[in-house]
Design a protein around this nucleic acid. Structure first.
Length: 592
RNA sequence: GUCCCCGUAGCUCAGCUGGAUAGAGCACCAGAUUCCUAAUCUGGGGGUCGUGGGUUCAAAUCCCGCCGGGGACACCA
């Protein structure tokens, strides 16, 4: 049970009681009344803003109302004291046993501790990565992948029914371009042209993709089809077949890279399949029937008119009716659908599959695209659909402060693989989650593998490993003791009396509300900071034992106090493990 | 020209959707290792929250105007 939620309920009950007695007017809105940990522990255990929020509707000055509430709150179960502070805060002191009960919950629930039901089982669709199947993924994709995956796990923990989705852009011109590049590599593998010929074609911009990662794809094509495509010159003949081959090959690489990062999607939706199934036509008909499309001519963009700008009539979507700056084109000048048109169909498809709650993780370079997709979703769902777009900002790679720009295999960018090979998936994942998504992130190979407090991955893992180390010693010291979670749950927690021990239990009690808040705000990075803080509390408690031997976790002559403290150590380990689980990071047993 | 994001200690960043004296790490200074991992811990100095208004009991947080940095701006995806 979430301790702060419990007290929020009890505070509401007190207010309800005063209303029933006529001391407060009926119909007060209690939604803004909060029960939170005070900023400073010295203020108490639970703090509420009730008097300040209700002052105006109740027609009483905040401090008067607070005084009234305090008298009643003192009578509430588990409250040992209540006082008014500052402009009208009410600080409650509560019985230490509440924190001990919280620790008991941790041991009983394990890594499920902190699971919430704010999602009420509602479906939510999290779409992330969705990298074009044109080549290996880069570090930007890695960030999107990690943020999306952690958010999905976080939302699950908070009680949402999450679907993790990947949109394959396999229908546009760029996959035709890769097919053309693949054909060059194919001819190269067959010995019909040289590597320099390919380079020349790239420089003349006859092909757009020069990465060597296409060579294995070409070899695979030779293995499957021999040289049959070499003789066929007409693009209309070879493009469709080579395109499908390339997409399949690239998606295999994408999935392998994602697997190396521990990322797995539930659903892969193909743009081409949507087009083939007529979903684009359906979606546009839906908008047309609603009177939201028309044929018109767009103005040139102000301040930056392209050289080749010319007025052309196009089918447009009335995005301005939904808050966008201009109406957006659905058809190109040659009559084919735009990417946006297909994207509308894709989002309609999500809605048709039962999702009204959508989250998309995109790169920051797609920022200008957000409004039109939100507009489209609004139009498709009569305003009922919720779409949150998280833009993952730039990732810059360094090694000891020196920028790293090139990849061995991809040419002009650092790939996701490079990153994983360099520092391991756990470090990649954790570090990517130490910033909010809309802040740029610097990733330094040297710093993220450093063994110091400055490196949050290490610091948190070290706390976990230290806890495990205590257990290894405990098993020797108390060979007959039941050190399982269930056994520890039966320990005598009243032996935990040191202020810092209580403090750590307070920290554990904050986990559920941290999970809830982070999930609702779509901000998984908050968990990273929570874990760092908890680790810090734990390291501090550990070191207290260095100064005062009687505070060490293990007391050879006192099994009762030792098991109680082991329960606390285990509680910290479980909550850290639970946070790392959301991050998709494996907790370590020891540091080496 | 328009839109989006960012601006908090010398540096890197938090700040729990409006609350109390704005917090961490690094760096700097001073300390703690016969003892569960000192890879850690304890203490100290350091901030007009870019700036000017507004909203209210209360603003780093919400609204408006500026300044500075980044990104995106017809038919590409």
């Amino acid at each position: 049970m979430n301790i702060f939620a419990t007290f929020k309920t009890r505070i509401d009950a007190v207010i309800g009681q005063l209303v029933a007695e006529g001391a407060l007017p009926a119909g007060l809105d209690l939604s803004k009344v909060a029960a939170e940990p005070p900023r400073e522990a010295a203020h108490g255990d639970v703090s509420t803003n009730a008097a300040m929020v209700l002052a105006k509707p109740a027609g009483k000055p905040p401090r008067d109302l607070a005084t009234l509430l305090v008298e009643r709150l003192k009578q509430v179960t588990d409250v040992t004291d209540a006082s008014v502070a500052g402009p009208g805060f009410i600080n409650l002191k509560i019985a230490d046993n509440i924190w001990r009960d919280g620790l008991h919950d941790v041991l009983v629930q394990g890594t499920a501790y902190g699971d919430a039901d704010v999602g009420k089982g509602e479906p939510i669709n999290v779409e992330y990565v969705s990298a074009n199947p044109t080549g290996p993924m880069h570090v930007g994709h890695a960030r999107g992948a990690v943020v999306g995956d952690a958010l999905a796990r976080l939302l699950s923990k908070a009680g949402f029914a999450v679907t993790k989705e990947y949109y394959i852009n396999d229908a546009g011109g760029q996959v035709d371009n890769v097919a053309a590049a693949l054909r060059m590599r194919y001819l190269q593998v067959l010995g019909k042209i040289t590597a320099d010929d390919v380079k020349g074609a790239l420089e003349r911009k006859e092909i757009q993709y020069g990465g060597e990662y296409l060579i294995p794809a070409a070899e695979a094509l030779v293995a499957r089809d021999g040289d049959k495509w070499a003789a066929i010159e007409d693009p209309a003949q070879w493009v469709p077949a080579l395109r499908d081959f390339t997409v399949a090959f690239m998606m295999k690489i994408v999935k392998e890279d994602l697997a190396a990062l521990g990322v797995q999607h539930d659903v892969f939706t193909s743009e081409k399949a949507l087009v083939t199934a007529g979903k684009v036509n359906d979606a546009l008909k839906f908008l047309a029937d609603a009177g939201l499309t028309y044929t018109g001519v767009l103005e040139p963009p102000k301040g930056k008119t392209p050289d080749d700008w010319e007025p052309r009539p196009q089918l447009l979507f009335k995005a301005t009716q939904f808050g966008d700056e201009v109406d957006r084109p659905l058809a190109k000048s040659d009559g084919s659908w735009t990417y946006f048109a297909a994207d509308i169909a894709y989002h309609k498809d999500k809605v048709d599959r039962g999702f009204t709650n959508l989250v998309n993780i995109w790169g920051a370079d797609h920022g200008g695209y957000v409004k039109r997709v939100k507009a489209a979703l609004s139009a498709l769902t009569a305003g009922k659909g919720q779409l949150d777009v998280l833009l993952a900002q730039m990732v810059r790679i360094f090694n000891n402060g020196e920028p790293v720009k090139m990849s061995k295999r991809a040419g002009n960018f650092v790939t996701m693989r490079d990153l994983i090979d360099e520092v391991g998936k756990d470090v990649v994942r954790f570090i990517m989650l130490t910033r909010k998504n809309d802040a740029p992130l610097d990733f330094d190979y040297a710093k993220v593998t450093e063994k110091s407090r400055e490196n949050p991955v290490f610091y948190v893992q070290y706390a976990h490993a230290r806890g495990r180390s205590v257990f290894r010693h405990a098993a020797e010291m108390f060979p007959t003791a039941d050190l399982s979670d269930a056994g520890l749950a039966k320990a005598d927690f009243t032996r935990l009396t040191d202020p810092d021990e209580i403090g750590v239990m307070r920290g554990l009690a904050n986990w559920p509300r941290t999970v809830e808040g982070a999930a609702l705000a779509h901000e998984p990075h908050r968990l990273a900071f929570y874990m760092y803080d908890l680790a810090s509390q734990f390291h501090a408690l550990w070191n207290k034992g260095n100064d005062a031997a009687e505070l060490r976790f293990l007391q050879a002559g006192d099994q009762a106090v030792s098991t109680a403290r082991l329960a606390l150590v285990r509680g910290v380990g479980l909550v850290i493990a639970s946070g790392l689980k959301v991050f998709g990071v494996d907790p370590v047993e020891e540091m080496r």
